[in-house]
């Protein structure tokens, strides 16, 4: 890639800035000068939903609750789910992949079978299945979506470990008597982590979107607001007709975030010239 030599580019830093802004807004939402997301701002003499105005930037929903404030508060749950999911996927998939790429043999065979089985479920079907069987708490949803990431992350980690395990610096480390544990942690992990960083951004986007899909099926977290649940709230035909802003506010926030994650992930991938990402 010729573009890779020119650095990460303006778009990459713009994406990262957006992600930082939205994360900070989500973290500090209770202390920001926002409207109360649970409060009903009913105006005497007019029936909600109210359109966007200077008091309600993105309008209000059917119960006269501020859409902008709710979208920021929704970011809290959505981002936690996205972040939790991909952390789980990276830790489990990464461990599985590095171990199977390093030790080969039976470890590799068993890990490959586990990944093959995971990959034969269509993604959302597996998520539906797990949420149906377990509860629908925040942690369960995040872990469920994390399981979807295990196989793709694992494959990438295994592929990069296979490449790096052949390199001279690993042979050298082994020659001076380093233990397997030391070789994996000190020599292999730092190299494998770079391609995984690119994948983790893309994976986080996928997890956030998957939560939205679950919300539309009625299977997302049972408490709190998420972007998926907020969009669903305004997606009925009658609400779309008279108050499209109820859905379109959270949609734009979700879209910008997914766009930023995808773009930053793609740029990182090109920058480090990672080839083996298949999602």
């Amino acid at each position: 890639m010729t573009a890779a030599r020119r650095g990460l580019g303006f778009g990459f830093w713009l994406s990262i800035s957006w992600l930082i802004v939205i994360s900070l807004a989500a973290i500090f939402a209770p202390w920001l000068p926002l409207k109360d997301p649970g409060e009903n701002y009913i105006v005497a003499g007019a029936r909600p939903p109210y359109g966007p105005s200077s008091t309600h930037w993105l309008g209000t929903d059917q119960d006269a609750r501020d859409v902008f404030a709710r979208t920021i508060f929704g970011a809290r749950t959505s981002l936690v789910i996205g972040f939790g999911a991909i952390s789980f996927g990276i830790i489990l998939g990464g461990t599985l992949g590095v171990l199977s790429g390093y030790f080969r043999g039976w470890t590799d065979r068993i890990a490959s079978i586990v990944m093959l089985i995971l990959l034969s479920f269509p993604g959302l079907i597996l998520a539906i299945l797990i949420t149906a069987l377990l509860d629908r708490g925040l942690a369960t949803i995040a872990i469920t979506l994390g399981i979807l990431g295990v196989a793709p992350v694992g494959r990438l980690a295994r592929a990069s470990t296979l490449v790096f395990a052949e390199r001279d610096f690993v042979t050298a480390a082994r020659a001076i008597g380093s233990s397997n544990r030391r070789i994996i942690v000190r020599e292999l992990l730092p190299n494998v982590v770079i391609p995984m960083a690119a994948l983790s951004l893309l994976g986080m986007a996928i997890a956030i979107v998957a939560e939205g899909g679950l919300a539309f099926l009625g299977l997302s977290v049972d408490e709190g607001v998420t972007w998926g649940k907020l969009i669903l709230l305004g997606a009925g035909t009658r609400d779309l007709e008279r108050a499209p802003w109820i859905s379109f506010g959270p949609i734009s926030m979700l879209f910008l975030t997914v766009l930023a994650l995808n773009y930053a992930g793609d740029r990182l991938r090109d920058y480090f010239d990672v080839k083996d990402i298949t999602l």
């Binding site: 939205g212 899909g213 969009i231 779309l240 379109f248 879209f255 995808n262 773009y263």
Partner: peptide, 22 residues
Amino acid sequence: SFLLIALPNFALAVILKYLLAI
């Protein structure tokens, strides 16, 4: 194509339903 890929299917469904159907 980049913008389309970043648009989740449920969001696209809501947008298309609003634009083309309603």
